[in-house]
Amino acid sequence: MRHHRSLRRTVAVLAIASAALAVPATATATPTATGVAAAAQEAIAAAGTATDVAGPADLLGLVDTANKGLEGLGLTPFFYPTGALNCSALPGTPFGIVPAVAGAAPGPYAIPGLPTVPGVDTNLVGKGETLFAFVPAGVVNDAADKTGMQVAWFNVNTFQGGFADMGGVGETLMGTLLARVPAQFKAIAEGILAPVVNAIPSAGVRLAPVETGSGTVLAAVFGQVTHDGQTCAFLPTIGLTQVG
Rank of each mutant, 00 (worst) to 15 (best):
E211N: 13
F159W: 08
F163M: 14
L235C: 05
A189Y: 06
A25I: 12
R8E: 14
Y80L: 12
I16P: 02
G244V: 08
G96Q: 04
P56S: 08
P182I: 05
F163C: 09
P236N: 07
F95H: 13
R206Y: 01
A137S: 15
A105Q: 12
A57Y: 05
K127R: 13
V11A: 12
L85A: 11
N141I: 06
N198W: 05
A102N: 06
L75E: 04
Q41D: 13
F154L: 08
V243M: 06
W153Q: 08
G215L: 13
L114A: 06
E71N: 12
T32G: 06
T147R: 02
D121G: 04
G107M: 11
L60T: 12
G229S: 07
T237W: 03
F234P: 00
D228R: 08
V210Y: 05
C232G: 01
P115M: 15
F132D: 07
D58R: 06
A43M: 14
P77Y: 09
V210S: 05
R2M: 12
T158D: 04
V196K: 15
L70E: 05
V23K: 11
A57C: 01
K127M: 07
A194H: 07
L218R: 10
V217S: 14
V139C: 00
T30M: 09
T147E: 00
G244I: 06
A189G: 12
H3R: 13
R9H: 09
A179Y: 06
L131S: 03
A219P: 07
G55D: 13
A187V: 11
G83S: 13
E71S: 14
